[in-house]
């Protein structure tokens, strides 16, 4: 079997923007207000009465060995663990604002932030610090998803939950449309481990605009702006 590569998939057909994943993450990791490891984005496009509202959870792209953050990190404060997950080195965290800023700037997804109290870098690590990911225990966002929109596992293992789900739906016809499993912004960094079903150009625009971690985009008056 090839090397372990953990990945997450969001089936946007199933996502109804309930924020359970975002809140579960805050609880699991004690993430302060104003910053997020996972953010549910709500945005709107179209004109009355053909108005659409869509939801897309966004997290750190977890690009494995290709991770721009990993590459830009010179002080060992970010490591690739035995499961192929990029995570902060809890033994050697960096508190150097210059170094942290450099790492955060290197990230094209905007998924990392400075923890306002710990003053170190923070981003999604698939709950590698709190759960037995290697043994198959899924992250907190996955286990609490009511509509089963989030799938996780070792994508190199064809028997994992994520691999089975991709096999079931990729290329199939659903409600008259062909479904595609796509990776978030795969053009820029090939090894991204965040997958979507039902990703539309409007949704990609949200990510391109780096709006996905700005807390003010939670407010209703910005939903339509996010969708443009």
């Amino acid at each position: 079997m090839s090397k372990k590569r953990f990945a997450i998939l969001f089936d946007l057909r199933r996502c109804n923007g309930c924020y359970a994943c975002q809140t579960a993450c805050k609880a699991e990791h004690g993430i302060p207000l104003g910053v997020f490891r996972i953010r549910v984005n709500t945005f709107e496009y179209g004109k009355y009465p053909d108005i659409k509202r869509a939801f897309i959870p966004t997290i750190c792209a977890q690009a494995g060995k290709d991770s721009p953050m990993l590459k830009s990190c010179r002080d060992g404060s970010i490591v690739l663990d035995e499961n192929g997950i990029v995570r902060k080195n809890r033994e050697r965290p960096s508190y150097n604002p210059g170094e942290i800023e450099k790492i955060i700037r290197s990230d094209p997804y905007g998924g990392a932030f400075v923890h306002p109290y710990e003053k170190s870098i923070d981003f999604c690590d698939f709950c590698a610090t709190t759960r037995n990911i290697g043994a198959g225990e899924p992250p907190a966002c996955v286990t609490t998803c009511n509509t089963e929109a989030i799938y996780f596992g070792n994508i190199s293992d064809p028997g994992s939950a994520i691999s089975r789900y991709i096999r079931k739906w990729d290329g199939s016809i659903w409600k008259g449309e062909r479904l595609h499993v796509v990776r978030m912004k795969a053009r820029e960094v090939p090894d991204v481990n965040v997958y979507y079903i039902g990703l539309t150009p409007e949704m990609e625009a949200v990510i391109e605009g780096h709006k996905q971690f700005d807390p003010t985009f939670l407010e209703v008056w910005r939903w339509q702006e996010a969708g443009r």
Partner: peptide, 25 residues
Amino acid sequence: AVKIDGNPLDPNVRGTVCAKGQAAL
């Protein structure tokens, strides 16, 4: 109390809770 999850034995819930349940802490 540090984290709230769904009770897998509850036949309605099947192990999940919503944002409100998570935030009850």
